[in-house]
């Protein structure tokens, strides 16, 4: 399974340009560097596919074919879903399944910022809920990679209710004495921050990732002033006591594997 993922990574992808220093790289060169700019160290945003290859030795996807429908008949949502499916080459904003690192089994979910900004509608909420319910049943830990602009407003109140639904499943998993590690990646905001992103037993963040509840523009409008440099970045959150570990991307697999091992006996 993971072998296919590897091959797909080296497929026909275009060159990528670093948004910080402007250098251009072939896709395979970037993959070799863990999607970090070899020149300036800037982190490229990663797709679930890339993340799974980087983190897991084995991975088997579940519910790969769940797709969203326009349940409220919201204007232009059908077109947006179609475009997102095409440009992100994926069916929804999260992928989940059973994975292994160094022989240790766990359930993993990875969000996708390329699919409608990683926003959470019914399908995203349902897949993450099922991930926790399955992990509870099979007594497995959960590792979740978050990236999201928040709730998907085209699904109205249904999208808001996903926060409660997922939180219920996280609570049951937690009450069963099972481990949940969250890895907050750039950007994690809104309803995802106000639910399962912050509900981990152990919260890891990637360096400089934007993490917050309210968007920077909304805060600036509310308080009538500019936000200071570094506000809502991973380092800011750690300083204020909300993040256990800020881990470099190259070391993430080792760190996750180590924490899983520490909880396995």
């Amino acid at each position: 399974m993971i072998g296919n993922f590897f091959k797909s990574l080296y497929g026909e992808k275009e060159n990528k340009v670093c948004k910080k220093c402007g250098r251009s790289y072939t896709y395979s060169e970037l993959v070799k560097h863990s999607m970090i700019c070899p020149n300036c160290g800037e982190y490229f945003r990663m797709t679930p596919r890339e993340r799974l290859v980087m983190i897991c030795d084995k991975f088997e996807e579940i519910d790969a074919n769940l797709t969203s429908e326009n349940i409220l008949n919201f204007p232009n949502y059908d077109e947006k879903l179609k475009t997102a499916t095409k440009t992100s080459n994926s069916k929804e904003a999260v992928v989940y399944g059973v994975a292994e690192i160094a022989g240790q089994k766990f359930v993993i979910f990875v969000m996708n910022s390329e699919f409608m900004m990683g926003s959470m509608g019914r399908v995203v909420g349902e897949k993450i809920t099922r991930a926790f319910e399955m992990a509870t049943e099979k007594k497995l830990p959960v590792v979740g990679f978050t990236t999201s602009g928040g709730a998907r407003m085209q699904e109205g109140i249904y999208s808001l209710m996903q926060m409660a639904k997922v939180s219920g499943a996280v609570k049951r998993h937690s009450d069963a004495g099972l481990l949940y590690i969250t890895v907050l990646t750039d950007p994690t905001t809104g309803g995802v921050t106000a639910s399962f992103a912050m509900e981990g037993d152990i919260i890891i963040a990637e360096p400089n990732a934007l993490i917050g509840f309210a968007g920077a523009r909304v805060i600036e409008q509310t308080i009538g002033q500019k936000l200071p440099e570094g506000f809502q970045r991973a380092e800011f959150l750690q300083e204020h006591g909300f993040v256990d570990i800020i881990e470099k991307r190259e070391k993430l697999k080792y760190t996750i594997s180590n924490i899983l091992k520490l909880h396995s006996c």
Binding site: S174, T193, A194, M198, F213, I219, T222, I223, L227, H240
Partner: peptide, 20 residues
């Protein structure tokens, strides 16, 4: 509330904990 202090004191976490 969408203010700086609310973010510094964990608005997201506070809501998340209530949901759980």
């Amino acid at each position: 509330y969408c203010g700086m202090g609310a973010e510094e004191r964990g608005q997201g976490l506070a809501i998340a904990e209530n949901l759980m």
